[in-house]
Each structure stands twice: as structure tokens, then as C-alpha cells.
Design a protein around this nucleic acid. Structure first.
Lengths: 340, 340
DNA sequence: ATGAAAGCGCTAACAA
DNA sequence: TTGTTAGCGCTTTCAT
């Protein structure tokens, strides 16, 4: 019953007009304290809650943010969702989640679905929402013309689009360099995505080699195309590389699950980590704790990024001018799989 | 601009009334095909999208389901969210996600937050939303009086509350029994939660022992109180148990991360798995693939449960009578950490 | 400081 | 088959 109360009921019980009730509801200054108290008392007594739809209609907002991500069950993306939702809720916003999968059409239709729900803004988690063919990114520009778009881990120039990212290029380059300087010569680079940040990591690896006068070798840059949970598949993949006579004494991976797969390869071949083979993962996820030795992994400060992203979002929503790009630097968390 | 169009604009351009536009929008049968086409053309031409708020106001629904879970970054919960959101979207529903954390007050306030958003139903993921003190569950009964509540992995008797769960008791009992029958005598049970399903698993373990005339020993039932990512903490925890002179040659864990921690304990102590120590995890998560040997783990059919949950939900929302309880049986996925 | 009343864009009952 | 119109519950001018 408390649920069904309207502003009219409250106004009647309180002996005021609906406008006055609305005012106390919205914290308007123009209400006599006595009146305010009277109304508040009735509201509490009956547990009245304003109807969110009607309010949405009037204000054209239900304080709701759309969150787009390819796959909420991915370790990294799941964390991002968690942090972002939390920060949003602390700021009084709800989160509508939409998992798009990895296909382009599905991403586009998911975004327009969210737009038709009149979300106040959209957060896109992961660089795979930006396509290499720039025409394919029109769907973002279109959406950005009506609400702010926040990108996590992606870089995209467009007004009303705000990017929060980690300098994956530099982080990968620095870590690879350290590996080289510790005496490793043949570094296998394992990756699984050609997204923006995927390419950035790759070029970081390449740059490190070039800086140390080590020629790039195609056979040392291998792309695993399986599912992000198929650790066993990664193990076979690496075994296969080794069986093709390709030698490596160091591995840099663009994701922890690749690194763990490599770790299992090493164990099955009785290759000692880190003495005979050093391995570096990416994301500093729970996976980096489950191997023995534990995995050195690049942390890209996800929690900080998410907090900053929401801060920027709230800023733009409240009319402040906000920087369009915020860049964090990642850092290598050293554990037992490296020896420097 | 296409965004700002209203049903009035469309009706004018099409030379019909708003009612007719509304009818074609909602697929009413009572529209002459010619008229329908005329209206559709205008709608497409201008890219008109009905205002979700106004529609919500009229229908008292925005086709939105609230999803409550303690922590979206938990491996298991993240998967559940993923599956449920997907199934909901396929049925034309949006998902509002709310991560509550593990405190009671926060759970209660999160639920009322969702209710005030007028969600059409609420999905609660995880048995930790049911409290042992039954009075504390009043918040669910209250909510259930206005919308259907769907519980995943929890058991709660209340009208308009629907439960989809796995028989964790039986699954744990069966797996423990197999372990016993393979010759293991001292089985350590590792758990980390006293939630409904946590207790069910524990009693499954206990039952298996009793069935085999093995006395229960308190020191063999150990509750780890750390964070669900603290695999290292688990390792120390188990080391500590062993150092206290407690002998065990088998471990059943209520979650894979506990089992992996135990696995790392074994490696650090040079205890051979599975010859000297057999280990069984729970959830069949990605963690069960990252150890060497791989972890045997109980699969509780999350994907099936989520699909069924949504099916039931859609059923209740469309006025069909639906069963209040659906129970799946889990099964042990055998891998290298057991030898039967 | 307060009230009256005009929307907001849509649905659905009722008329035609 | 189509149109008219009365809500849905709230916000927000505009008077008072």
C-alpha cells in the first residue's frame, strides 16, 4: 500500500499542494521549515516513494548509466564492472548492464538499445568497442551526440567522448626491457586480441626489442585465437611453438591466462621458471596467484581508472568541463616467474 | 533530432492519430496493413524511438529486471550475471545491476533501491541473501509482495519467491564418498561461508563420513575467513593446519580458490597430488585449469540454472503458473587432482 | 512561501 | 479500422 501512494495522497494528508510536496521532495529552498517537517512526517509515516517513471518523464532522466562490455564473465571486465557500478551508485546513479559479446553488429545494437532506454551516459569497458575501420565507429559518434560516452581502456577522439586508459604501450615496453636487461634474448610475445590496447601492448614489446638492437621475428609474436578460459589450449599452443623448433627463454603475455598457459607448458616440459624461462603476464589478476611460482604481472591500475572514469562522468553530467583523456601508467608487479 | 520526435510528430506526418501510431508500435492486430506500412515508413524515415519513460509511466514497467549480487568480481557470481543478463536480454528485458557487498544492511538498502526503480522483478544471485535469523529475511517478503523474486542458489519459502538451485548437499556428499571409497581416510573440509549453500555443502561432507562410519572431527572442518582472491592466504592457512599436527590425505573444498590454495600448499611441502593427497574443488571455474595437475571440481551447472531461472521468471511475468523450486544436481568433473 | 495548472509522451478505454 | 480523450505521477512555470 505504501507503494501505491502518490504525491496527491501525500499532499492531501499534509494539507498542502502537490507542488509543495514536490518541493520538499527535491530539497527546494522555498519551503517553510514547519511545512517541510509536516510533509516529511507524512512521507515517512506512509513510506511514500516517488514514482521513478513519472519523475523520469518530467526530468528526462532516471539517473541511470548504461554499461557496455563484451563479456561480464571475463576476469578483468568483471572487476571493471564491479568498481564502476560501485562508484556510480555512490553518486546516486543506477547501472544498466549490457553484455554485447565480441561481434560488431551486436555491439552496435546493444548501444542503441541502451540509448532507447534514455540512459544519462554510457560506459564502454574495453578497447574492443573501437574498430580499426574508422567508419565502423560512427555508432559511437552518433550516441555521443546525445549523451556522454566514457571509454575505459580505449582511445578515441570525438567530442563528448571521454577516455580513461592505461599506457599499455609503455608498461609493456618497460617490462620487456627489464626482461632483456636481465639477460633474456629470445622473448616470445603471446597475445590474443588486435584491439587498440592489444596493438599498443604489441608495439610496446616491439619497441623494447628495437631499443636493444634485437631484430623482430614474426615467429616470436604469436596470437592465440581460443577462448579466454582455455588455459589448456594455450598450453598446447605454446608446446606447438616450441615443437616447431622456435627457441625462447622469456615470455611476455598480453593477459594472465596466456601466461598461466605458458607456465603449464613449462611445467609439463620440465622447464624451470624463472631460471630457464621467465614469464610476465598482464592484468595482475587472481590467476597470477594460482601458479607456482606466482606470476609476475603488469598491473594497469584498474581500480584507479574506474574511480577516475566515474569522477569524470559525474563531472560532465554536472556541467563541469572535464579532460577528455586521462592516462595512468601501469607497473610490473614482480613475483616468482621473473628473476630480476 | 531523430531522438526528439514524439508520437505526435509521427502521427501528424503519417496523417493518422496518435492512437494508430501507438497501435503499430505495439503490434496491435487492429491496423489496416496499408496504414501500418505508411506509419512504419515514417517511423523508420525519422528514426523515431518511443520515449521509454512515458511508456514506463503508462505501463508501469520498463521491462527491467534488477540483479542483486554481493560482488560482481567474484568468478562464480560474474558468470551468473553474464548468463542471466544474456537470457534476459534475449527476452526483451534490461538488467539493472546492483552489487551489494556482504553486509546485511547494504543488501536491504540495495533491494529497496531497486524496488524504488520499479523493476519488474528481482534476481538475487547467491545464497548469502538469505539470513539465518528468519526475521532478517523480512525484506525479501516485503519485496515479494510487489514483484517476483528469483533466487539463484538459495532456498526460501515464500509466495512469489522462486528458487533455482543445485543440490550442493548431494554433490558434496557424493564426491566425498568417492574420495573415501578410493581409500582416503582423513579428509580435510575447507570452506569459507556459512550461507545456506555453504552449510549444505558442509552437511554433505559430514553425511558422507557418517555413511562410512568415519567419526566427524572438528579440526578437519576448517573455515577460511579471508578474501576470495587470497590464494596465498589459503596456502598459509592450510600450512598452519598441517603444522598443528593434523593429518589429512584428502581435501574437499567449497570453492576452487580454496582448493588451489591447498594445491599450492602441497607443492610447497613437496606433497604429491594426487598420490599422497587428493583434492576436490567446487564450481569448476577457470581456476581448476590453472594448476598442475588440473583440479577435479564439482560443477553445479550454473549455465543451466541461469537459463532455467530466466525461463521461470518470464513465465511468472506472463501470468503462467510456475514451479517455485527447481533443483539441479551437480556433478564431479574429474581431473588430475584425484585418482579415482 | 504556497497553490493552480500546464505539460512530459505514451497507453488504453471508449466512441465512432 | 480509426480517432478522441482521459489518465499515469511528477516537475515547473506562473500567479498569488
Amino acid at each position: 500500500m505504501s507503494n501505491q501512494m502518490t504525491i496527491y495522497d501525500i499532499s492531501k494528508k499534509a494539507g498542502v499542494s502537490i507542488a509543495t510536496v514536490s518541493r520538499v521532495l527535491n530539497g527546494s529552498a522555498n519551503v517553510k521549515p514547519r511545512t517541510r517537517k509536516k510533509v516529511m512526517d507524512i512521507i515517512e509515516q506512509y513510506g511514500y516513494k516517488p514514482n521513478a517513471f513519472a519523475r523520469g518523464l518530467g526530468l528526462n532522466s532516471m539517473k541511470t548509466i548504461g554499461i557496455l562490455c563484451a563479456d561480464a564473465s571475463d576476469l578483468y571486465l568483471a572487476k571493471a564492472i564491479y568498481y564502476i557500478e560501485q562508484n556510480l551508485r555512490e553518486n546516486g546513479y543506477h547501472s544498466v548492464l549490457c553484455c554485447t559479446g565480441y561481434e560488431m553488429e551486436s555491439k552496435k545494437s546493444s548501444l542503441s538499445l541502451l540509448m532507447s532506454q534514455h540512459v544519462d551516459a554510457v560506459v564502454m569497458i574495453g578497447s574492443n568497442f573501437i574498430f580499426n575501420n574508422n567508419e565502423d565507429n560512427e555508432y559511437i559518434r552518433t550516441a555521443a551526440s546525445s549523451v556522454p560516452i566514457m571509454l575505459l581502456n580505449a582511445d578515441f577522439d570525438c567530442s563528448n567522448v571521454y577516455c580513461t586508459l592505461c599506457d599499455d604501450h609503455k608498461a609493456t615496453q618497460d617490462s620487456t626491457s627489464k626482461l632483456i636487461e636481465s639477460g633474456v634474448k629470445d622473448i616470445l610475445y603471446l597475445y590474443n586480441s588486435n584491439s587498440y590496447s592489444g596493438l599498443k601492448k604489441l608495439s610496446g614489446y616491439q619497441n623494447a626489442l628495437l631499443l636493444h638492437d634485437i631484430p623482430l621475428r614474426k615467429e616470436l609474436m604469436q596470437c592465440f585465437k581460443g577462448h579466454h578460459e582455455d588455459i589448456d589450449g594455450v598450453k598446447f599452443f605454446v608446446e606447438n611453438i616450441a615443437d616447431n623448433g622456435i627457441h625462447f627463454d622469456g615470455i611476455v603475455a598480453s593477459d594472465d591466462f596466456l601466461a598461466i598457459g605458458a607456465m603449464n607448458f613449462a611445467r609439463s616440459r620440465h622447464i624451470k621458471v624463472p631460471t630457464q624461462l621467465q614469464i610476465i603476464g598482464y592484468n595482475n589478476s587472481i590467476l597470477s596467484h594460482c601458479s607456482e611460482p606466482e606470476l609476475s604481472s603488469i598491473d594497469n591500475r584498474l581500480q584507479d581508472m574506474c574511480a577516475q572514469l566515474v569522477r569524470t562522468l559525474i563531472g560532465t553530467l554536472t556541467q563541469n568541463d572535464m579532460p577528455q583523456k586521462t592516462i595512468f601508467s601501469g607497473e610490473l608487479i614482480k613475483r616468482g616467474s621473473t628473476s630480476f
